[in-house]
Write a protein that binds this DNA or RNA. Structure first.
Length: 185
DNA sequence: CCCTAGATTTACT
DNA sequence: GTAAATCTAGGGC
């Protein structure tokens, strides 16, 4: 299974968020392999999006959102959680990223159970911080190239069922934008 | 099922 | 100083 090409991410962030549903994320740690199908995403853009980390200006934390598309933007929040994003934007935007909010676990479920200290498969990776913990994604993956088969990459997955659009979760600004996307497997 | 409180660090005002 | 793209445990229904 080949990875998604760089051009896949060089599109409107909202479009890429929809297109990422059903794709497969793989994380390789030594000989261990963890993977899952993306089932929930959210788009965060630039000046037109008050809820985005990139809304005001470039900083040490958000700089990945301004750099090469198809790379990882990982941030730390609430004093204890990492969240994983994919840098994506149309050519006429300066910044943008897609937050991966949930996956349907595929390979390496036992490893994820260990990482998450639970055997409840439904709750293994059904939230952005849970997913990062299950897949062992931390600041070390900041800027990782997801178009190459390294320790973290994204490839074709399943046929995408009907997409459900909603307001984004956990934000107070720009609540009217329906940039949260989900599929039901 | 629903709700609320508390954890705990960073980054920006 | 304080809000933050969150989660879990504990209580109630």
């Amino acid at each position: 299974m080949s990875t998604l090409p760089r051009e896949f991410y060089l599109n409107d962030t909202v479009t890429v968020a929809r297109n990422l549903l059903g794709k497969k994320i793989t994380r390789c740690i030594g000989r261990q392999k963890i993977s899952g199908i993306i089932i929930e995403t959210e788009a965060y853009r630039h000046r037109d999006d008050p809820a985005s980390h990139a809304h005001s200006r470039i900083t040490e934390r958000n700089k990945a959102m301004f750099e090469e598309v198809g790379r990882a933007y990982v941030y730390f929040t609430y004093g204890m959680h990492y969240c994983f994003n994919v840098v994506a934007r149309s050519p006429n935007f300066d910044a943008g990223a897609v937050l991966i909010r949930a996956i349907d676990p595929d390979e390496g479920i036992e490893i994820m159970e260990k990482n998450r200290k639970t055997k409840d498969t439904k709750r293994l990776a059904n939230g952005p911080a849970k997913l990062a913990q299950a897949m062992q994604i931390t600041k070390e993956q900041y800027g990782a190239d997801l178009t190459k088969k390294g320790s973290l990459f994204i490839s074709e997955g399943i046929e995408r069922p009907k997409v459900i659009a909603n307001s984004r979760v956990g934000i107070r600004k720009a609540v009217e934008k329906k940039w949260n996307f989900k599929i039901e497997i």
